[in-house]
Design a protein around this nucleic acid. Structure first.
Lengths: 147, 147
DNA sequence: CAGGTTCACTCCAATATTGCAAGTGACTAA
DNA sequence: TTAGTCACTTGCAATATTGGAGTGAACCTG
């Protein structure tokens, strides 16, 4: 009776959530994307030590983060995002935009900027074919392809 | 000792996750975006009845879904996405793209198409100022604005 | 050099959530 | 009459989360 694994489902959304869909996990990814590296930095998010330690272990196992020594005597480690982890930026960006538009409260969290021009980027849905931005009303569901 | 609420944090990402960050919830949103409406349809996702019923109730309370009667004697209800719920498409799209690129397995899930041209859209990070697509390497974290 | 502090954890007990199975109630179809 | 559908509810055991205390190595303070 373990918590149901979504890892083997034939759906990339489910497989993503199997890795980053547990409580607290995407907030760790958020902070990593916004510059946090050390255990003590991630602790400020607000979860207990045991949760943080197990989440970090899972994220390292899943190759979202990698554990790297930054000091000897005593050995201390920090957690750096891998390419796989950095690729989660659109997920975090989409959640941030949704929260800004549809929830109440302020936004004291850090952010990222486009290095070249210094401005904040946004996430958008764009048609791969006609290359125009697509609104939610222009989207039409099509039936399952077999499962 | 309830599960910690993220609803009151000064971060839109945390507030979003408070609403849709529980286990199974985004898979319900996925199916709703891809056309599911009825309890029995959502049940195929694979969760138990008690979980499904409580998740649907939470999503209705959060105004992601609305419960609408589609039959009398006996009264039966279906769950329809609100505008607030439809606005979660970029989150689902970003998770899907990440899962396609970074996890192994096939994709038998349904999809959506751009109604005007019939092609599948994608999610991208684009600079609000210079209006170019931004790669993960071009993003730079900047420090917290106060909390 | 005793005592306190930092950092990155581990361990424990109480409570909450999840998983699974079975049951319910209002019908309809055979 | 019996079975089936649909949208749930209830109960119990297994697992996860919470919050706090403890650990160990090394530094810093007087």
């Amino acid at each position: 009776m373990r918590k149901t694994s979504l890892a083997d489902l034939p759906c990339p959304i489910a497989r993503s959530l199997d890795i980053v869909g547990e409580w607290w996990t995407l907030l760790i990814v958020r902070d990593a994307l916004f510059g946090s590296r050390r255990y003590e930095e991630f602790k400020r998010i607000g979860m207990g030590d045991n949760i943080l330690a197990t989440r970090l272990r899972r994220l390292v196992d899943a190759q979202i983060l990698c554990r790297s020594r930054y000091q000897r005597r005593p050995d201390r480690y920090e957690y750096l995002l891998t390419a796989r982890g950095r690729a989660l930026m659109p997920v975090i960006g989409a959640l941030r935009q949704w929260g800004r538009e549809w929830t109440e409260g302020n936004d004291l969290s850090p952010t990222v900027i486009h290095d070249a021009c210094g401005h904040e980027p946004h996430v958008e849905v764009r048609c791969s074919d006609c290359d125009r931005e697509v609104t939610m009303a222009e989207l039409r569901p099509i039936p399952a392809q077999g499962g």
